[in-house]
Design a protein around this nucleic acid. Structure first.
Length: 135
RNA sequence: CUGUAAGACUGUUCUAUCGUUCCAUGCUAGCAUUGGAAAAGGAAAGUCCGGACAACGUAGAGCAUCACGCCAUCUAACGGAUGGGGUCCUUAUUUGCUUUAAUUUAUUAAAGUGAACAAAGGAUACAGAGAGUGUCGCAGAAAAUAACCGCCAACUUCCUCUAAGAUUUAUCUUAGAGAAAAGGUAAGGGUGAAAAUGUGUGGUAAGAGCGCACGGUGUUCUCAGGUAACUGAGAAGGCGGAUAAACCUCGUGAGUUGAAAUGCCGCAUAUAUCCUGAUUCGUAAGAGAUAAGUUGCUCGCUUAGCGUGGAAGUACUUUCGGGUGCUUUCCAUCGGGAGGGGUAGGCAGCUAGAGGUAAUCCGUGAGGAUUAUCCGAGAUAAAUGAUAGAAAGGUAAUCUUUUGAUGUUGGGCUGUAAUCGUCGAAUGUCAUUAGUUUACUUACAGAAUCCGGCUUAUAGGUUUUGCAGUCGC
RNA sequence: GCCAAUGUAGCUCAGGGGUAGAGCACUUCCAUGGUAAGGAAGGGGUCGUGGGUUCAAUUCCCACCCUUGGCU
């Protein structure tokens, strides 16, 4: 039985790490989500990923809308997380994942899950390609 | 009953599964499990006022700046609220005058213009324009101690003419008429947002608050009512604008910065140090001195704590000196450049409060008092959610149904030359009552230290008051 | 969380109580064999929205809305 828990330790909080992610500029864009990702060194804990969401204030002026979108994305991530973690744990490395919502309308959970699925496949592909180059 | 305007209250519910924050519990001491009838608002919003709380500053007076401004009350406080007063506007009513028309010749009608009281509704940043300065476009004679046109010829003066008288015979005096450089006047000028207190009347050379009557509006005094703002009555003496959300004057009040404040732990040589400018103090040099003490500092160990050391004088306390009238207080402050580090972690502040609810009492009311009872968010890259199902409400449509209005068709009755009237039937349209089914939908909006207000947003429901319409009694 | 500034013609900006302007752009005409430059004429504004003060508001006061910026 996979765990759907989503604790504080799995949330990306360090300003330094976020800064590094944006400087690294490795991103995957599948509408309506953009993922900015990278390895975290040194790793904070045993979880294979740390996660953060942001919604631009320019497109959604009301706090209610922004909160709603963040909650939906967080929920979608929580439900798809076990598969992702299983695949990523093979690389023996902690990764930071930063999601930016780029859509213009309020999303439904189904759309978010679709996008997350495709992002996961692409991410794993890129990672395994990197790993083979190193070897 | 329906519509409409304003206000008040309310602001969907339940179940299952998977999660988040917090609290409690468990033990292996940072994880797991179990439990929780714990977890967004009336505006959490805008950040427009007022406070609590905190840090720093702070004698008084003066200067500057800002805010407020009818009265009383409420309140921790307010620029908020409640009650009252004044002023203005709208509606309706009454009345004076002018013009026009009609005829009954003193009435009626219409229009214009001036004024008044009470009622209802609404608005009101509502101290001072009689302290001073400024501004008032265009139009208009004139826009602020008014005099251009006009009006006047009584008084004064000058000139001309006529008459009478006197004598110095061409001068004077008196009377009358004319003219108006000077003079008087402010009714008329139709422009304007505003034209010097309105209307009527007397008066006059012409006029005028110059007098009078009825009004308007200030000042002073007296009396009466009211806590007061203010109101009423009487007397005296007045009447040459608007603007203070123009400068300003008067009165009242105000230190600055905000919980990312602030304190502690941790990390730290960290207002380090050097150069330079300005200000302040000092005659100048220059930017206090000296001594003692400390829960402070150094080093070691994981924390608490314990042990050790005694160099330096950052901090605090006491003493002395200097500046200041005294006390307080200060003994440097602020800026620029160079240079060289560190953090963006934890704990407290952090939620029991000018708290909520109910009852009783006081008050016109805002509100207050007493008693009982309840405690129900505390996140920090920022929790309070997702999915599925059910219920409730709303909107729209289809169908059935109740009632009413109305059109068409043919029929009966009364009755006619005929239209017509009336009764019930079929069918169409509109409104309406109740129900079925389907679809859509359930507002505005998310705590960030906490309160009191204000402002703005808000589907639907409930309700109060006013107004309008319909039906019944 | 806290604090400022701004809004005027299609664009960039003046105007700080008395009928709202400049430059560029736009339209028409002149000039040229034609185009540009040049010359002449013209159009275009709820002065962000709603109240208030005033005789009169783009301007003064109040509330709201939009945009932009700053602190952390």
């Amino acid at each position: 039985m996979p765990s759907f828990k989503f604790s504080k330790e799995e949330k990306l909080k360090s300003r330094k790490v976020i800064q590094q992610l944006f400087e690294r500029r490795t991103s995957i864009h599948i509408f309506p989500l953009r993922l900015i990702w990278g390895p975290i060194e040194p790793r904070f804990n045993d979880y294979p990923t740390q996660f953060a969401v942001t919604v631009p204030k320019k497109r959604f002026a009301k706090a209610v809308d922004r909160n709603r979108i963040k909650r939906v994305i967080r929920e979608g991530y929580r439900l798809t997380k076990p598969i992702l973690n299983e695949q990523l744990s093979a690389f023996d490395q902690q990764y930071g994942l930063m999601f930016i919502y780029t859509g213009k309308k309020k999303p439904s959970l189904v759309e978010i899950e679709k996008s997350l699925k495709r992002i996961r496949k692409k991410l794993v592909k890129q990672l395994s390609a990197e790993g083979s180059e190193d070897k």
